[in-house]
Amino acid sequence: MREGEGDPGLYDFRPYRDRAKIAWPEGKTVAVWVSPNIEFYELDPPANPQRKSWTKPHPDVVGYAHRDYGNRVGHQRLVDVMETHGFKGSVSLSIAMCQHHPEIVEQVNALGWEFFSHGAYNTRYSYGMDEAQERALIEDSIRTVREATGQSIKGWLAPALTHTPRTLDLIAEYGLTYTCDLYHDDQPGPVHVQSGRLISMPYSLEVNDHYGFSVYNMSPREYAETLIRQYERLAAEGETSGTVMCIPLHAYLVGQPHRIGPFAEVLRHIAADGRAWITRSGDIADHFLAHDYDAATADAARYATEAR
C-alpha cells in the first residue's frame, strides 16, 4: 500500500457497468462460498497496545464462553446443514485450532473444506507487528495448516481484521493469491502488491452473521431472509457480470438452536435454485486468475487517468 497517503493505492478504479464479464463454470451466474470462521479466543491473552482483546477484566466469562460454544456446540450443527445441502466450507481459521481442537480441523478437512489463515488466535492482533513478526505469523500459518491438513493456504483474512501496511505485500510474496480483507466490490479484482499476484476475494461484513445478529440485531428469520435477498440480487446481476456471494459465519452465532433452522432454509434455497456455482474461495481465486485477471486489468487501464 501507499503508506501515509489518503488513498492507500490498493487497487485501480473500475466501475461496475463497464467490465468484461466473468463466466463462471457451467454457465452459473454467481459463485457462492460459505466461510465458517473457526476461531480460538484466549481466556487471558497478552495485551496489544492498540486494541483490547476483551471489554471486561479477564476472565470475560460471557465473551470467552460464547466463542467456546461455537467449537463445542455450534460447529457440528453448521457442518450438518452444510453437508445436507452440499456446501463445502472455506474456513477462516485461527491456526492455533490445529493444536487446541485438531479434531475439528481434521473433520472438515476430510469433508473437503478449504482453509485460509485468520491469524494465530482471534485474540492476537497484527497492529504494531514489525516485519519480522508479521513474517513469523505468515510462516507459522503456512506451516501449521500444511502439517495439520496437507493444504497450502491460498488466502488470508487478517486476525480480527487487524492489518499492517505490509500485510498484503507479504502474503503475496509468500505465494498467497487472495485477501478477504477488502470490501470494495462484488467481484474479485487485482490488488497492487510489490511482488506476486494478489486478488481481492469478496467476503462480506454486511451479510456476515456477526453483523446480522450482533450489529443489526436481526432475528434468525430476518437474517435468513437477508441472505436470500442478497443471493437473489447477485444471481440476477451475475447473468451479465458474474458475481460472488460470500456467507461468512461463526458457529457461536449461527449455530445457536434458534438460528440454525432458519439458516438451513437459506442453503436449501440456494442449492435448489440452480444459478449458483457452489464452491470454495480458493477455487474462485484459481478460476479468476486463470480466466479473468488480465481482462480486469485491461478494464482498469481504460480509467488510467482517474484516481488509482
Partner: peptide
C-alpha cells in the same frame, strides 16, 4: 515492534488454554 511475548503462545496445546474444564464436543 510488539513485545516478543506477543508472538509466544505458552498455552497453544491440545484442549483448552486453561484448566477449568476439558475440551468436549
Amino acid at each position: 515492534a510488539l513485545d516478543p511475548c506477543y508472538l509466544e503462545y505458552p498455552k497453544r496445546r491440545h484442549g483448552m488454554d486453561h484448566d477449568f474444564y476439558p475440551w468436549s464436543n
